[in-house]
């Protein structure tokens, strides 16, 4: 299975991690190519501090005009973090570590590492760096399941 993870908000970090670890449990070889803000999922420090915004999400009970006020992203993020905790849902970091232990290959796109001025050492141990779009295309060509998240 080959996934592409492009988003780095707290809510969007979960789908690729849950699908990757579950597919590994099925015995699939799994690669997840992280690019743009998806890199933050693999970033050891940033992954513990991913944010959620109510702006642009009409399903959240906060009007956009209120959600855009300073500090509101922190409020909605706290709200979601509390729910994750109450529900005994694994944290993003725990899911990354679990998936790595199961043999999931997490790839950090080199072009966006350079673009966002990240360092190879910023990522969890075991994350593959020095890869680009051709690696992702090759993995997708060989996979039974391909998905962009």
């Amino acid at each position: 299975m080959a996934l592409i993870a492009t988003k780095g908000t707290l809510d969007m970090a979960y789908p690729p991690l849950i699908l990757a670890s579950t597919a590994a449990a099925f015995g699939y070889e799994v690669t997840v190519f992280h690019t743009f803000w998806g890199l933050d999922i693999l970033h050891e420090e940033h992954s513990a501090d991913l944010k959620l915004s109510s702006v642009g999400n009409p399903n959240m009970p906060v009007p956009n005009v209120v959600g855009a006020l300073p500090g509101m992203d922190r409020v909605t993020t706290r709200m979601m973090e509390r729910r994750i905790d109450d529900n005994d849902t694994a944290t993003v970091g725990e899911l990354v570590e679990t998936a790595l232990e199961m043999g999931v290959e997490f790839q950090a796109c080199q072009m966006t590492i350079d673009l966002l001025d990240y360092d190879e050492d910023d990522f969890f141990d075991g994350v593959t760096t020095g890869v680009g779009a051709a690696t992702a295309v090759q993995d997708m060509a060989e996979a039974d399941i391909q998905l962009l998240v």
Binding site: I18, A25, T89, L95
Partner: peptide, 14 residues
Amino acid sequence: KGASCPMPVIETKA
């Protein structure tokens, strides 16, 4: 008990 998706499947596999 108490764990939610995906952990029951992950732990079962392990």
